[in-house]
């Protein structure tokens, strides 16, 4: 069989790079423009049925739910914290107090402890989250999260004019 001797033998085939680079740069620009650094978010779970059936009246329970009340200044900042009947100056003190209550044998355990959170209507939400953070956990020296109270509920809201 006769093998055809082509003229282009050994010729380098060149790819057209220009369209590919065009598209690649367009893709790159698209991804750079849509890139947005979003801070990670997390949730505090609250289970609040409308009419919660109570296992027992609070006075008959071994450890009745703790009551936390946050009062507000006129500008919505935190004015005071009351845990049961005890006044606490800062959220840090609240966290330490909760650690004392949960950590001891005489108090409720992490699983059974329950807290009802109430606050003034005008209190800014960030302080509410701050207090919920303080009662729900803490961090140890290594940065690991230690859970404290998991059952958190809000009390019935009061309208601002009441």
């Amino acid at each position: 069989m006769k093998i055809r001797n082509t003229d282009g033998e050994g010729e380098k085939i060149e790819l057209q790079m220009t369209p590919m680079i065009d598209i690649v740069f367009q893709l790159l620009v698209f991804f750079i423009m849509t890139f947005k650094i979003v801070a990670m978010e997390g949730d505090f779970n609250i289970r609040m049925p409308a009419a919660a059936p109570q296992a027992a009246p609070p006075d008959q329970m071994e450890f009745p739910p703790m009551k936390l009340y946050l009062s507000a200044n006129e500008d919505g900042t935190l004015a005071g914290i009351r845990l049961n009947e005890e006044s606490l100056p800062t959220v840090q003190h609240l966290n330490s107090r909760i650690q004392e209550l949960i950590g001891t044998d005489g108090g409720p355990s992490r699983d059974t402890a329950e807290i009802e959170v109430g606050f003034d209507y005008d209190l800014h939400y960030e302080w509410v989250i701050g207090a919920i953070t303080a009662v729900s956990g803490t961090k140890d020296a290594h940065g690991n999260v230690v859970r404290l109270i998991e059952k958190i509920r809000f009390n019935t809201p009061e309208s601002p004019n009441e």
Partner: peptide
Amino acid sequence: QEAGFENFALRAEENINSAPKYITPL
């Protein structure tokens, strides 16, 4: 609650500077 929902999640942003603003380390 009045509409019948029972489970809620309050969303917060992770505090990247690990210096806890509201909590005290053990």
